[in-house]
């Protein structure tokens, strides 16, 4: 069991709208670990949602430029975080 935490920044045009949220949830669902996305609101409040839940991700209502923390805990935590970072920061959801 391991716990992995990484920060990412959303660089795609529209932020976490329907398509990117779908890609995150379906990517996260491939892993056994519990995975969370964490966003700090402007008022300092912290939103922590299940990355396998589309509703959870859309609850973040995160526009472009938002910083998110990915947190995973479980047998494949390292791979899960790796896959999500690649999707969000490297492939930028293949939008551009």
């Amino acid at each position: 069991m391991s716990r992995v935490v990484r920060k990412v920044k959303l660089r795609n045009r529209l932020g976490l709208h329907a398509r990117p949220s779908t890609l995150i949830a379906s990517t996260a669902a491939k892993f056994e670990s519990d995975i969370f996305l964490i966003k700090e609101e402007e008022n300092g409040e912290v939103m922590r949602v299940n990355a396998k839940s589309l509703f959870g991700i859309m609850m973040l209502t995160a526009p472009m430029g938002t910083e998110l923390t990915i947190e995973a805990e479980g047998p494949d935590a390292e791979e899960a975080v790796e896959a999500l970072v690649r999707l969000i920061e490297v492939e930028k959801f293949n939008e551009e």
Partner: peptide, 16 residues
Amino acid sequence: DIFAQFVRLIITDPTF
């Protein structure tokens, strides 16, 4: 189909 997956994830969403 990304839209099909979008709808699928909504209707199977654990929270919902």
